[in-house]
Design a protein around this nucleic acid. Structure first.
Lengths: 235, 235
DNA sequence: AGGTACGAAATCGTATACGAAACATACTGG
DNA sequence: CCAGTATGTTTCGTATACGATTTCGTACCT
């Protein structure tokens, strides 16, 4: 297979992996670049350009983009092209609200299956987050935040819901930095709520209580963001 | 544009509409056939065959199938092909559970925006459903059921959530007939719950109450199905 | 000078073509 | 008679090619 010499290094390194079809490879590559921030929101995704860069033809790239569109990571307009889905404040609001609901549900469903080891791991992550509050690094903090919540919802027995949660997180990841960059004050409170959430799960609280707590935890972040940006247009 | 003469009548009639790209047309056509039941679960979707039948090449068909895959209507296996996603009892369970959550949320968010006219319309539909209980027709009943709930959640201001609800309904539509075919006893109770739900919304009940009611309404159907089919494997 | 119409370039959409993988079948060797 | 391998057919995966559509720049008219 004579890979085009112009294929970028990063693309090649991804393509080399055992990933099957080129569609899949393209999907992974583009997604990575969006999440990582190489392709910033609003960036115009030109099929031919990406294809040349990745070293294969446009057909797999098209499919990859369609998949990303379905996930909401890119916006697609017929006969015009695809752009990286920006995080329109409104979109952000919608995504956070949706995530609050599905993540809340996933966490509640997951709770009975969360063992002591998981709790311990989550607590360790939360401790790191607390440390992180000193010399505050929003990006790192957000990363830890995802780790923390992952522990809590990954045991969710319903794969559909779990998938929805992952999609939500992915969309938020497009926000290169993090919510906490905009509302640093929220970070401190967030850590405390994490501990409270852990206690709830440990004590075997009923599903409804856990769900509400998890949902509120996220809504609070959203509200903090909203009051910060003076968005009157509240759904 | 020389359309192949062998294109099936139904495909042509759909294609004639103002629908834009062939991708889109293919998507609509295939989806229609799945929902309508022409392609039953497990049916093997051969790209070339569908392409020939619809009158255009395989490329748009591929894209359409990928989209349907993202929506969960078809299952896809690399180098093997696509099949209509059956409704594995387990899958059914997952879908219903997910729908109970997102539809509950959508209904609650929608409630404040539901006007008297909407309520009246919903009530009319529910009356039809009650009639329908006499000479019971599961398919018709399910149709009305969707109409009823549509009125209640279509005003949901969050398009993401609304989209999730639609996807859920679509998946359930793959069930050619209806849940109520399996648990006809549930139909009667369902109508009563609908009226209760309407009263709640009319009285301006708080979001949480409405959400719980809507969610429970669906969970109850799921539970009825489960106890019917003796599925011990309860998530 | 401003706006509109025309045309060229860029980019997308789809068809056709060929190579690769998976599955079914028949054949050969034990 | 059975097992394992070889071969053929089906179907998918991707590349290339060309037509269609949009967009942008430029020239012309008012």
């Amino acid at each position: 297979m004579t890979e085009t010499a112009t294929a970028s290094v990063v693309a090649a390194s991804i393509a080399d992996s055992t990933a099957g079809s080129k569609s899949e490879q393209a999907y992974q590559a583009i997604k990575a670049r969006i999440v990582e921030g190489t392709y910033t929101p609003g960036y115009r995704l030109v099929l031919a350009a990406i294809a040349k860069d990745l070293g294969f033809s446009v057909v797999p790239v098209r499919e990859a983009i369609r998949r990303l569109e379905a996930e909401g990571l890119v916006k697609f307009e017929r006969n015009v092209g695809a752009t990286v889905a920006g995080i329109d404040p409104t979109e952000y609001l919608y995504t956070m609200q949706t995530l609050s609901i599905v993540e809340g549900a996933a966490t509640a469903l997951s709770a009975p299956l969360v063992g002591e080891a998981d709790i311990a791991r989550a607590r360790a992550v939360n401790a790191e987050m607390r440390d992180c509050l000193q010399h505050f690094d929003p990006v790192r903090f957000t990363r830890l935040n995802q780790d923390f919540h992952s522990v809590l919802f990954e045991h969710c027995p319903n794969p559909h819901i779990l998938d929805l949660v992952h999609r939500g997180w992915n969309r938020l990841a497009s926000l290169r930095s993090s919510t906490f960059r905009f509302v640093p004050g929220r970070a401190h409170q967030s850590v405390d709520e994490h501990e409270a959430l852990l206690r709830l799960i440990e004590s075997g609280a009923d599903a409804d209580t856990i769900e509400k707590a998890a949902r509120l935890h996220r809504s609070a972040t959203l509200d903090a963001y909203l009051s910060q940006t003076n968005l009157k247009d509240h759904s």
